[in-house]
Simulated scan of single mutants.
Amino acid sequence: MYLVSLDAGTNMYFKVTGILLTITVGLVTGSFLDRKDLFKILLRDYQKDLAPAGKGGGPVVVYHSLFVNAFESLENNVLTLQTWEWMSWNDNRLQWDLGSYGDEKTLFIPSKLVWQPDILLMNSVEQFTGFAAGDLNVIVYHDGNVTFVPIRHSKTLCPFNMESIYRENEVNCSLKYMSWAHSSKTLDTHSTFQTVQNLSQMTPNRLWEIVDTKAERNELTFSCCNTEVYPEIEYTLTIKRLR
């Protein structure tokens, strides 16, 4: 018997791949030619730089979930996690009749070819250099629903006082996600779950333990444009010091 050691990043890749394979089992039914024709038809006049319209011409609704795969560190007021974001929305430009194209129910399309929400980790300590997951596939369903699960290496500011750590033995850290440009008039964001996901399978940290999480939707306004509302999804992690 051979034992293969996987680092956290490789392990996360196989976990994500397994999840995506699980949710698409039995949904890929057509032939290669069916998928080729469908791919060409869907993207022929598609404009990826334009956000899709929501129901009744309203905002596109994006559902957001945070999965934590590894707790790397909490030091110097910076929380470092390996995560993936599970995002889903409906793009009515990517619909097709279920009875066409060999009864194909889903199609895998490189994410760089379709619109994706400009949702960013707003309290990141790292400079934004663009979306690193542009070559990952999205899963497109026949009804226009799109699922995208980009892998992230998240570093967030988590200010805490060492005296309070030794007194209370816990610290709260938040990860805040929102659209960079869109208000709720054109893009509305909601959390899929009320907590952070995957903690039972997370690679733990020997110094810290995540003991509680919650997800909240906040509505923010800014002095520049106080008639606009900007939805924010905030994930709060309660972290206990182990030693």
Rank of each mutant, 00 (worst) to 15 (best):
T203H: 08
L74K: 00
L242D: 01
A181P: 11
F160W: 14
I239V: 08
T10C: 05
W208H: 06
K40Y: 03
V28N: 10
N145M: 07
K105A: 10
A132I: 05
A132T: 06
Y63D: 09
D118I: 07
D143P: 14
L120C: 08
N226K: 15
T80K: 11
T213E: 00
N76H: 11
T221F: 02
S179F: 01
G26H: 10
G144R: 12
Y46H: 03
T203V: 13
I165F: 04
L237T: 00
F108E: 11
C158S: 11
G56A: 08
E126I: 12
E168Q: 10
T22Q: 12
T227V: 09
K185L: 11
G144D: 09
G144F: 08
L6S: 03
G99A: 12
Y177M: 11
N137K: 13
T83Y: 13
K112M: 10
Q95T: 14
D7C: 03
N145P: 04
N172V: 08
I41A: 06
S179L: 07
S223I: 08
L33F: 13
E104D: 02
Y235A: 01
M1I: 12
N90E: 15
M87C: 04
M178S: 05
A70H: 03
N90G: 11
M12Q: 01
V25Q: 15
N172D: 10
V78F: 04
N218M: 07
Q116F: 15
I210P: 03
T129S: 13
N145A: 06
A53G: 12
S191W: 07
F67V: 00
G58P: 07
L113C: 02
K240N: 00
R206A: 10
E163H: 09
L21S: 06
G99L: 13
Q201Y: 03
V211E: 01
L98K: 10
T156Q: 08
Y141C: 13
D49T: 06
R152H: 06
A215E: 02
S65I: 03
C158Y: 14
I165L: 14
L187E: 09
R93A: 05
P204D: 01
T236D: 02
A51P: 14
G54N: 04
Q95E: 13
T147E: 09
Q201I: 06
I41C: 04
E126K: 12
N137S: 11
L42H: 02
L121H: 04
Y235M: 05
L120I: 10
V68Q: 00
E163F: 14
L120R: 15
A181T: 12
I19A: 15
Y177C: 04
S88P: 02
H64P: 01
D103P: 00
V68P: 01
W86G: 05
K214H: 11
A133K: 07
V61P: 09
T236A: 05
V149P: 06
F128N: 13
V25C: 10
I139S: 04
K48H: 09
S179V: 03
T17Q: 14
K176S: 08
N90D: 15
M178V: 01
L187D: 01
T227Q: 12
L6R: 03
V171I: 11
V114C: 02
K176Y: 07
S200C: 10
A8I: 02
R152E: 05
D118C: 08
I19F: 15
E216D: 02
M162K: 04
F222E: 05
Y166H: 07
Y101E: 00
T192N: 09
R167N: 07
S65N: 08
S31M: 01
